[in-house]
């Protein structure tokens, strides 16, 4: 039990440190982007979207999952280019 609590505390501390609610997060979020907002028109085009048609994509994921033993990590990262 002690071991688990210790492990959880270490992991959580590392997240707090990594995300740094204090000031690191501000620095990370305010970092100067090397692709400027006005340079993101290509990235914002629907043809660059991993999940352009969510219903069809979810269906194909289901088709493959039903016929393959492998599962998971088959979606997009849920991210984009911040240019919507």
């Amino acid at each position: 039990m002690k071991k688990r609590m210790l492990l959880s505390a270490v992991l959580l501390t590392s997240v707090v440190t990594a995300t740094g609610c204090v000031s690191t997060m501000d620095e990370l979020t305010n970092i100067e982007p090397w692709v400027k907002p006005y340079e993101r028109s290509n990235l914002a085009d629907p043809i660059m979207s991993v999940n352009r048609n969510p219903v069809a994509m979810a269906y194909m994921r289901h088709v493959f999952e039903a016929r393959e033993a492998a599962r998971g990590a088959d979606g997009g990262a849920g991210g984009g280019c911040g240019c919507n």
């Binding site: 997060m25 990370l28 979020t29 305010n30 970092i31 100067e32 982007p33 090397w34 692709v35 907002p37 990262a77 849920g78 991210g79 984009g80 280019c81 911040g82 240019c83």
Partner: peptide
């Protein structure tokens, strides 16, 4: 949860 950072160039989910 998902969040953009590094000047909106990275998204962590």
């Amino acid at each position: 949860f998902s969040q953009d950072f590094f000047g909106d160039l990275s998204t962590l989910a």
